[in-house]
């Protein structure tokens, strides 16, 4: 940090998580895709709001951590809170070789456009 204490945020990480340092759940690993299930409501923690806004489209945990500028462990705690209240859901990525061939997808796209 170039100028300590000047540009960082006054929030300490333990106030974000209420003092917890472990999520107590392994629903989220680094590449779990997170999807928002409900809109943010007033009075929510700003990080939760940010996650819910960010995850309208599936987003990986590690990406969320990078966007929020928070350690992954802290993000996993926040995500577990949201997951426990049903506001987000977790999708584990399928491995790449089982995805449909991009050529087929492209043909489908062309076909749809031709309709």
């Amino acid at each position: 940090m170039s100028r300590p204490g000047r540009d960082d945020s006054p929030d300490r990480l333990y106030t974000l998580t209420g003092g917890r340092s472990r999520s107590g759940s392994d629903a989220f690993d680094l590449v779990t895709l997170v999807v928002t299930e409900s809109d943010p409501v007033p009075g929510m923690q700003s990080e939760h709001v940010a996650i819910l806004r960010m995850c309208r489209f599936p987003t990986a945990v590690v990406e969320i951590a990078a966007e929020l500028g928070l350690p992954v462990t802290v993000v996993r705690i926040l995500l577990t809170d949201l997951h426990d209240t049903g506001r987000v859901s977790a999708r584990h990525p399928r491995s790449a070789h089982r995805l449909p061939d991009p050529d087929i997808l492209e043909q489908v796209l062309v076909g749809l456009r031709n309709l």
């Binding site: 960082d8 300490r12 990480l13 003092g19 340092s21 350690p71 462990t73």
Partner: peptide
């Protein structure tokens, strides 16, 4: 204290281990 808080924040970002992070958060507090 300010310098130490900045250092701790740096370390909290560096160490992903939950045990270490817990200890760091404790020190931070």
């Amino acid at each position: 204290a300010t310098g130490m808080l900045a250092d701790l924040r740096d370390m909290e970002h560096r160490h992903a281990d939950e045990e270490v992070l817990g200890d760091l958060l404790h020190l931070d507090h």
